[in-house]
Design a protein around this nucleic acid. Structure first.
Lengths: 248, 248
DNA sequence: TCAAAAGTGTTCTTATTACACCCATGG
DNA sequence: CCATGGGTGTAATAAGAACACTTTTGA
């Protein structure tokens, strides 16, 4: 393998866009860098992939060290590798995103976790490295995903109200949804268990609580299925669906 | 950067799933390996990324050397990096796929190109490395893509008939489509230019020829749009759309 | 009794599906 | 004149979008 030696001088990292939902807003967990390069800047949590470690395992490790969470929604999104993205040498990074329930998150003892903080995705700017680009790519993936898979539940506590769920969808899609149509659609999926409980201590009519029916979802998945959700209101995107035939 | 030296001992490659359409069938361009490892096996075209080369540039280079083509549809799909996927050491590979018109393809002079051959995607098996997995991932991406973007035209000659286009969709989606519904849908997109020409020398009523309206497509893209195509016939997948509400 | 959010149905419009016959050409 | 694939329209069904009032609770 001598002739290839020159290629074995690069490194790769994973970066993890850890997303949560809180106060009606999508949040991302960022680390304040204590070292050069980009000392003092906020960055996505990530690290070098160990020589004997698979990529997915590295992403899980980063997540676990920071949040203590496992068995979390995690997906590879895209790899970023422009030549000069890292001052230490040629380093490409594989971007992942994960969805967690902020209520499950407790700050870990590790020194890295001490520097972590939730930021509103919409207001994030000027991250270290090419992390703004990575965050954008991952958030866009989530926007697509939420329309095609019921992943929203990964971000909510086990019991939630339909309005909370709707607000989550609205935060991700950055649009408003019609309450009645949203409920009709979600309930027609048959993936929610009505817990026959209601909120307590709220200054208005208490809402019913629901739970995601994970078992039924796995059944549907096994059969192969499609799940879709479209936006409402008049902010319609132009769609070919409305164009008329050009060749009569 | 001393403490990180141990990480700068890995390499990365790009592998390119080059897809074409011919004889009613999706084809992938493979290389017969002349060297160890996997000598004699078919493999996806790929190579190490040069130290001063961006990932996309490397994918373009591989494509160009093999086919002589540039300005071709090319997209990053996924990165594969299990620990022992390459016998030379830690090598992760970034998978790309490209769509080309087989009619534009002419075997190049380069020694690598001499070993290239088109294979029917459906019949490919036992590739070198983890290339079967990579091919699957890329082909699945295309299946998704063809339903959401008009990329089919990348695979057809400049002038084509609606039946050719339909057969392409059927080959990619691995399903059958209804002729009338397909035409209605495609024409209603307003993205085809009727050339007012017909086929010649066919032993049946000659079909009209169409051209893809690239300019109009760019306009639509600029505005942001959605393009969708659903399958027909009774081979329906179960869909939540038909489920009934669970909470009346 | 007020404020605040929960909950609930119907109508209209648009998209999708299913389906069968005549046409133009070359051999 | 036959074989082959090209070309066309309509009716039934399903999904999506728009829209406003009553209910329940705590303060």
């Amino acid at each position: 393998m001598n002739e290839f030696n020159e290629y074995f001088k690069s490194a790769f990292t994973v970066d993890n866009v850890i997303l949560g939902f809180d106060e009606g807003d999508m949040k991302v967990l960022l680390i304040k860098r204590g070292e050069e390069p980009y000392k003092g800047k906020w960055a996505l949590p990530g690290y070098f992939v160990y020589p004997n470690e698979d990529l997915d395992a590295a992403a899980k490790r980063v997540l676990d060290e920071l949040t203590g969470l496992r068995n979390v929604y995690l997906e590879q999104v895209k790899t970023f590798g422009t030549v000069n993205r890292h001052p230490f040498g040629r380093v490409i990074t594989v971007a992942y995103f994960s969805l967690i329930k902020i209520s499950d998150y407790a700050i870990q003892a590790s020194s890295i976790a001490q520097k972590a903080k939730w930021h509103s995705v919409a207001r994030v700017k000027d991250l270290a490295f090419d992390h703004n680009e990575i965050l954008d790519a991952c958030f866009n993936r989530l926007k697509w995903l939420i329309r095609s898979r019921p992943v929203g539940f990964e971000l909510l506590p086990p019991k939630f109200t339909l309005t909370e769920l709707q607000h989550l969808y609205e935060a991700i899609l950055e649009t408003e949804l019609d309450k009645r149509n949203f409920r009709k659609k979600i309930l027609s999926m048959n993936l929610l268990i009505d817990l026959d409980e209601t909120q307590e201590g709220v200054a208005h009519r208490p809402a019913r609580l629901y739970q995601f029916d994970k078992e039924k979802y796995e059944e549907f998945l096994a059969e192969g299925f499609s799940f879709e959700l479209k936006e409402s209101k008049k902010k319609e995107k132009p769609s070919f669906k409305k164009a008329s035939p050009s060749f009569p």
